[in-house]
């Protein structure tokens, strides 16, 4: 059984988690449709360690995991507040 460590709930069967895509910088709201389409729909599909959104389904808790896409090893998981720790204002 593969185990993932949820920052809020601790180690759980990986079947309790839902993948939420790569963590990427959001484009400027005024960016072109092409840039936005790329951000929303296209994954980089990097080989190696990537940063991804994951959700623990029983608690709907979203967090960030660093995972090696080559070996499927989960390197580290942490709360999203580690990256997103201040409010962003958009004009």
């Amino acid at each position: 059984m593969k185990i993932m460590n949820c920052p809020m709930n601790g180690p759980r069967n990986v079947s309790e988690f839902v993948w939420g895509g790569e963590v990427r910088e959001m484009p400027d709201p005024a960016a072109s449709d092409h840039e936005w389409a790329e951000y929303v729909f296209i994954e980089n599909n990097t080989k190696g360690v990537v940063r991804e959104w994951w959700m623990h389904a029983p608690t709907s808790y979203w967090f960030i995991a660093e995972r090696n896409t080559e070996t499927d090893e989960i390197v580290r998981t942490y709360p999203a507040t580690e990256l997103y720790n201040s409010r962003r204002e958009f004009k």
């Binding site: 709930n9 759980r12 069967n13 079947s15 309790e16 623990h56 389904a57 029983p58 608690t59």
Partner: peptide
């Protein structure tokens, strides 16, 4: 409290 899967259902 454990929030986890119990009999395949998300549970508390």
């Amino acid at each position: 409290i454990a929030q986890t899967s119990v009999a395949r259902l998300s549970a508390v």
